[in-house]
Design a protein around this nucleic acid. Structure first.
Lengths: 334, 334
DNA sequence: TTGTACGCGTTATCAC
DNA sequence: GTGATAACGCGTACAA
């Protein structure tokens, strides 16, 4: 690998000091227009590209143009859309994004958290596995810029962008109740994640408001992955007195549920009504079109990136928490 | 931000030289077991984490444990699966992955290519926009470790992992011909991408073998995005004599096609038969279940990562090109 | 306005 | 076996 040209070589060729070259690059200090032009010319000639690694090592924070994004599952279209939102804002601001996928795995999340710090990224956007995590709190306490997305964290003032999960779930279940369902099952998320807890709370609130008793046996917890959707749907529908409707707390588990229902040759919504959370590529043209709670996913990503950029720019600013609104899209599965 | 402990501080506290600490970390050189244990102990006490940036700056190549992955579209489940394959192998080998999504945008691809070099990653996996790209060839010529996935590059010996696109398309179209279709339209990919070219070639070969004339008007080129699927399907079906079947060269465009077909209230496969390329989350339970050419996507990612790791380990090894086989999954849309 | 010299945290090359 | 010390490429006080 022929070593790429560095700042020293540019300086020699341009017959100026390294600091002059550095200053023309970073627009810091006063440099005569003539010198600047000359240096730029030489840089172009030699095909000089600043070494981002050396730059990051030298500068303490803020100007390295590298963001971290740690998400639970890149195969979930929800997080893919979110990542796009983050990416777009980052790109517009000349930041690169170090994207890591921890696969709902605690150890892997820990690994990537370490990597982010060791790479000294300017800041990171994180969708944490658990709602309370001492290690993450410590990172924040150390002054690392962190913004939570989708899932949040308790116990510290952290910038975050979330959706009103409880309200989304409330509307979904209320809709099912209006349709006359009384035995409504929920395939919820992990109980120790913020979204899991909030969506379950919305479910319970809707039942309570309608004066319908909450039957514990109809509440099951998945892990937001397809397989748990399959398994838990099977479990619920195999009960002596199965539910007539299902509220499923994320899109991947909804896919699993649909597969199980198809395997059982049950009809939607006649035999079992369905409302999901998060949109899905073919949802609108599915048979029947799927009723779901849609989140402004891309916007969540954008907002988070904007928040992070602001915090990097001004580390001492007050933390803000943005809550976006979900929307119940009523189609034909309910 | 309280500066994290560094190697020097560890050395001082342990009353040894920095080189001793470095050597215990990297298992290089001879260190007595006793000293090693002592140093490890101190490292644990102080919560020392090696600074990856400094390490990357110092070491020439190979041991930085950072891979780059540049893909056209993270919102395409195909690339999400592929990314998972790459990630899994990387994680097993303690590598982090710098994932960048260029959104089928040439300038953005260029930007990320620059970033990868400037970050001095150990190597990268790339699915290039165009089949021939001088800039990329130059990077490879400079000794940068690059592995192509899915889409390939002409003009240089590069490790690559691809799928036999021509064969996949051939089987898809042959299947349609067997079903009796004679007017088969194709929504192909970009003509200057390797997959676009190869899938079109497979289409033509199948027609030729069946002795069916190839009608240029039935060949249209999309950009692998949903919107072009919508638009081009509309164009083809609005013709005076529309095709009776459509072969659609990727999953996102297939979604667009299905939406357009639904909007026109056409029935699949009665009014228009459909075969897609790449699987899709709900494809198997869709009405009708979708016939598609399935690629071993996750495996493609895994193989590419393994190849890259090998090349990093041994830069001078002969380039290898792996071709995986696609599989036609016949369901009910054709 | 420009140049000199030092340090960021690490690894590698010498000596001992 | 272990310890000094010089790089890696860049930014920045400080000097000129």
């Amino acid at each position: 690998m022929p070593s790429p040209v560095n700042l020293v070589q540019v300086a020699q060729r341009a017959k100026v000091a390294t600091s002059t070259v550095s200053r023309t690059i970073n627009q810091t200090g006063k440099i005569s227009a003539a010198t600047q032009e000359h240096v730029r010319q030489v840089m172009r000639e030699m095909g000089y590209k600043p070494n981002r690694v050396a730059r990051r090592l030298r500068t303490s924070e803020g100007k390295c143009h590298l963001l971290g994004l740690i998400i639970p599952n890149i195969q979930n279209p929800f997080f893919a859309d979110l990542a796009r939102g983050v990416e777009d804002v980052a790109y517009q601001n000349n930041f690169a994004v170090l994207l890591c996928n921890y696969d709902e795995d605690f150890k892997k999340q820990q690994f990537y958290l370490d990597v982010m710090q060791a790479e000294s990224v300017d800041g990171m956007i994180l969708s944490p596995l658990h709602e309370s995590d001492k290690a993450i709190l410590r990172i924040v306490a150390n002054g690392f810029s962190v913004v939570c997305v989708d899932r949040s964290l308790v116990g510290a003032a952290i910038d975050k962008v979330v959706v009103d999960n409880q309200r989304g779930a409330f509307e979904a279940v209320s809709h099912l109740l209006e349709k006359g369902h009384r035995r409504i099952g929920i395939i919820s998320g992990p109980i120790d994640s913020s979204t899991g807890r909030e969506r379950l709370a919305g479910y319970k609130a809707a039942l309570a408001q309608a004066g319908v008793a909450c039957e514990p046996a109809l509440i099951v917890h998945g892990d937001y992955r397809e397989e748990s959707g399959r398994r838990l749907t099977d479990a619920l529908l195999s009960r002596r007195s199965p539910p007539t409707a299902l509220f499923i707390a994320n899109n991947l588990m909804l896919i699993g549920a649909i597969e199980t229902i198809a395997a059982k040759s049950l009809r939607i919504p006649k035999d079992i009504a369905l409302v999901g959370f998060d949109d899905l590529p073919l949802a609108a043209v599915f048979t029947p079109p799927l009723t779901i709670v849609r989140q402004p996913t891309y916007e969540v990503g954008r907002s988070a990136a904007e928040l992070l950029l602001k915090r990097i720019d001004e580390p001492q600013r007050a933390t803000v928490s943005i809550q976006l609104l979900p929307e119940l899209i009523i189609r034909k599965s309910s």
